Computed example of a mutant assay.
Amino acid sequence: MEIGVRPELCEANGVCAGLAPEVFELDEDERLHVHRPVPAERVERVTKAVQLCPKGALYFVEGPDELGS
């Protein structure tokens, strides 16, 4: 499972980092970093984070050309 982020939509609300801190990390400048690939044991929490992102900044990557930062 791969997750992408649309940085222009991300407002650093931290919902994702709260649900799966091993995968999502906000740096000191409030930029979101996604640690890839998503470990199998975190898929459920990461899926929930994508669904609950208040700005819709997270998405599931279908292919390698879709991967953002």
Rank of each mutant, 00 (worst) to 15 (best):
V34Y: 09
E25C: 09
D27A: 06
P37F: 00
R36A: 11
L32N: 04
R36I: 02
P37Q: 14
E41Q: 03
F24G: 03
P39H: 14
R45N: 08
D27G: 10
V50T: 15
H35A: 14
H35W: 14
F24A: 09
L52Q: 13
V23G: 15
H33K: 08
L52S: 08
E41R: 06
E25V: 00
R45S: 10
A49T: 09
E30W: 12
R31F: 12
V46C: 04
R42V: 05
D27K: 09
A49H: 10
V46R: 06
L26K: 08
L26V: 01
L52C: 15
A40N: 07
P37N: 08
P37L: 03
E44I: 03
R42W: 12
R31Q: 11
E44V: 14
E22Q: 11
L52V: 02
E28A: 08
D29F: 01
V46Q: 09
D27H: 02
T47K: 15
V34W: 15
D29Q: 11
E44T: 00
H33F: 03
R45L: 11
L52W: 10
E44H: 07
D27M: 01
K48Q: 14
E22F: 05
H33N: 06
P37M: 02
R31D: 15
L52Y: 13
V38T: 02
K48P: 15
A49I: 01
F24R: 13
H33W: 00
R45C: 08
E30H: 06
V43K: 05
